[in-house]
C-alpha cells in the first residue's frame, strides 16, 4: 500500500493533515493581517497593495491553493469529529470535565462558525455581493478603493460587530489549535512545554488584535477621518 495513503488512513496521520493544513492557514492569516494593517499608512498604501495583488499572475493559483487547504482542513476535521462522536454512543450521566477546557471542546463549533464567517467575508469584500454601495468604486489613481470600502463597511455597527465577533471566535479556535499543533507533530517536553503554553495565547492575541484593530479604529473615528 502506498505510504501516504496508509498514513492518512490512520488517526495520527489524519491529525497530521489537520495540523499541517492548519499551520499553513495560520501562516496565511499572518500575511493577511499584515496586508490589512497597510490601512494605517493611508489609502494609497492599501489600494496600491490590493491593486498589485489583483494583477498578480499567481493570484488564482494562490486562491485555489487556499481553497484546497481549507477544504482539506475542514473535511478531515469533520471526519475525525464524527468518529469521535461515534466512539462514545452512550453519554455519561455526569460528565467527566477533567482537563477538557472550553476552547478545546468548542473546536468544531468555533470552526464551523468561522467557516460561515469566511463565506460572508468573501461575499462582502471579495465578491462584494453584500454590504454598502461604495461610490465612487475607484480611487483617484483608477484603482479599486479598498480603503473607502473598508471605512464605509466598518462604519456600519452591525458589520463591525460581525467582524469583531468572528475575531473572538478565531481567538478561541487558535488558542487550542496552536498548543495542540505542537503535540500532534510530536513536540512536547517538560523543558519547553511552558514556552508553548505561552506561545499559543501570545500568537493568538497578536493575530486577533491585528485583525480587530481595523474595525475598532474605524468605529472610534481614528481611521477614515469622519
Amino acid at each position: 500500500m502506498n505510504r501516504l495513503v496508509r498514513l492518512f488512513r490512520t488517526s495520527i496521520g489524519s491529525k497530521l493533515v489537520v495540523a499541517a493544513s492548519g499551520t499553513l492557514l495560520l501562516g496565511f492569516l499572518f500575511v493577511h493581517a499584515g496586508g490589512n494593517l497597510l490601512i494605517l499608512k493611508g489609502p494609497d498604501a492599501l489600494n496600491g497593495y490590493a491593486d498589485w495583488m489583483q494583477g498578480h499572475p499567481l493570484l488564482w493559483g494562490f486562491r485555489l491553493g487556499l481553497l484546497a487547504l481549507f477544504a482539506v482542513h475542514v473535511l478531515t476535521a469533520i471526519r475525525l469529529a464524527r468518529a469521535n462522536r461515534a466512539a462514545r454512543p452512550t453519554p455519561y450521566r455526569r460528565i467527566a470535565r477533567l482537563g477538557a477546557r472550553l476552547p478545546g471542546r468548542l473546536m468544531v463549533f468555533s470552526g464551523l462558525l468561522l467557516l460561515a464567517f469566511l463565506i460572508f467575508h468573501l461575499l462582502h469584500l471579495t465578491v462584494r455581493a453584500v454590504g454598502p454601495e461604495v461610490q465612487p468604486l475607484l480611487d483617484g489613481a483608477g484603482r479599486v478603493d479598498v480603503y473607502g470600502m473598508i471605512v464605509a463597511s466598518f462604519s456600519e455597527p452591525l458589520t463591525a460587530a460581525v467582524y469583531l465577533l468572528a475575531m473572538g471566535l478565531l481567538g478561541l479556535h487558535l488558542v487550542h489549535a496552536i498548543e495542540g499543533l505542537f503535540q500532534t507533530l510530536g513536540f512536547n517536553h517538560e523543558s519547553y512545554q511552558g514556552l508553548i503554553r505561552l506561545l499559543a495565547p501570545a500568537l493568538t492575541l497578536l493575530l486577533v488584535s491585528g485583525f480587530a484593530a481595523i474595525p475598532l479604529l474605524v468605529i472610534s473615528g481614528a481611521l477614515g477621518g469622519g
Binding site: 491529525k15 469521535n84 466512539a87 478545546g104 473546536m107 487550542h176
Partner: peptide, 12 residues
C-alpha cells in the same frame, strides 16, 4: 476516538 489534545486522560 481520535486524540484532540484535551489531556483529560492524563488527569484521570
Amino acid at each position: 476516538g481520535n486524540c484532540t489534545n484535551h489531556y483529560a486522560c492524563a488527569e484521570a
